[in-house]
């Protein structure tokens, strides 16, 4: 199933550096659990033995963005919360990916209202949109597998090598209100 299948006869194999790095990356995606509302309950269920996100190497939910490479935005993002989500995203080291989990996160969902951002892609680059209100845990695993497919196709040279302390955190000044 894994590398050992290749190793049993000769003890070594040859590969491309891009392939081995992409394989390592996609097999240990560390999620940042950005649990904002009810979707977070389903996200927790993904961690339990029944669904077991550990099968995909993603059981290490890090509660500091500096150790994560996948942000699972699970819940309704309000305008007041948006700068916080963005700030946490900006603190994650490259390369990084985002799952917009659930209807609210992807499009505002049932909250068609002045207070809710109608889709987090207005301020974040989203890789996978996940339907459901909330999505079932196996659905989130499917999204994770999509992310893994995407990571598997990447090349190491695609990603800029930016030291953590050089990351530019762009936040709007809250006292500036633009009028149309």
């Amino acid at each position: 199933m894994g590398l050992e299948a290749y190793l049993k006869d000769n003890g070594f194999f040859t590969t491309k550096i891009d392939a081995i790095i992409a394989w390592a990356r996609k097999s240990s995606v560390w999620p940042m659990p950005m649990g904002i509302s009810c979707c977070a309950i389903e996200m927790m269920a993904v961690g339990d033995p029944k669904y077991d996100i550990a099968r995909f190497g993603s059981e290490v939910m890090r509660f500091t963005p500096r150790q994560c490479d996948l942000m699972i935005v699970a819940g309704t993002v309000t305008y007041k919360m948006a700068p916080v989500v963005r700030k946490i995203y900006d603190q994650m080291p490259e390369p990084k990916w985002v799952i917009a989990m659930g209807a609210c996160t992807s499009s505002g969902g049932m909250y068609r209202s002045y207070s809710v951002v109608q889709g987090i892609d207005q301020f974040l680059p989203v890789d996978v949109y996940l339907a459901g209100c909330p999505p079932r845990p196996d659905n989130l695993l499917h999204a994770l597998m999509k992310i893994q497919d995407k990571i598997g196709k990447t090349k190491a040279s695609e990603f800029p090598n930016i030291p953590l302390n050089k990351i530019d955190i762009n936040l709007p000044e809250l006292n500036v209100i633009q009028k149309n």
């Binding site: 068609r112 002045y114 301020f123 009028k179």
Partner: peptide, 15 residues
Amino acid sequence: FPLMGIPGSLPLPKK
């Protein structure tokens, strides 16, 4: 007050 709010009255972070 309109249901969807006043456009631009709440700032969002830059993409």
